[in-house]
Design a protein around this nucleic acid. Structure first.
Length: 158
DNA sequence: GCCAACGTTGGC
DNA sequence: GCCAACGTTGGC
């Protein structure tokens, strides 16, 4: 099984929004970056676990864990003019390059694992999310990193 | 195919 | 709000 980290801006869609969604499940739409697209298309599999990270927020933190419940398939929002994620170029061409996965909230951290807390932890020093300028919104996380963050977050089941 | 200019992300 | 770092675009 593989582990991932997905960023979200809580003002747009927060971890609690995911928890409150029907069946605590949502299509992770709106990713418009090819590297992240490739991960969702090729590498992210059913049952993989995902850390949900709040970016551009107070606090910046990992808020909980989600599970992949649907593997890569077309992100239809790219072709929907009414969607905030509409991709005009893709729509004009008539081919949709964008892919999403379905995620379901699995556990909520009783202790939000803040960016500062991540930085303080020796075993997390090489995490992509901590690198300056790292913008990839879907990132791989090692099993060791995942376990450390789980220990810090003291998760409770949803 | 290079690379400068641009728009966006996201920490600070 | 600022701006560094990044990915993408488009002229050549």
């Amino acid at each position: 099984m593989n582990h991932w980290l997905m960023k979200t801006e809580p003002s747009v869609f927060s971890f609690e929004d995911l928890v409150k969604a029907p069946k605590s499940t949502t299509p992770w739409e709106g990713v418009r970056n090819y590297q992240a697209r490739n991960l969702m298309r090729d590498s992210i599999k059913m049952g993989d676990l995902v850390l949900i990270y709040h970016s551009n927020a107070e606090p910046m933190a990992v808020m909980g864990v989600a599970e992949v419940v649907k593997e890569g398939h077309p992100d239809k929002s790219a072709m929907d003019p009414k969607s905030q994620y509409f991709d005009n170029d893709a729509a004009k061409k008539g081919t949709n390059p964008w892919v999403l996965v379905g995620v379901k909230a699995k556990s909520r951290f009783t202790v939000a694992v803040t960016r500062d807390a991540l930085k303080k932890e020796k075993g997390l020093a090489s995490m992509m999310v901590l690198k300056k300028g790292a913008r990839l919104s879907v990132q791989p996380v090692t099993c060791e990193e995942f376990q450390i963050i789980l220990r810090l977050g003291k998760p409770e089941p949803i």
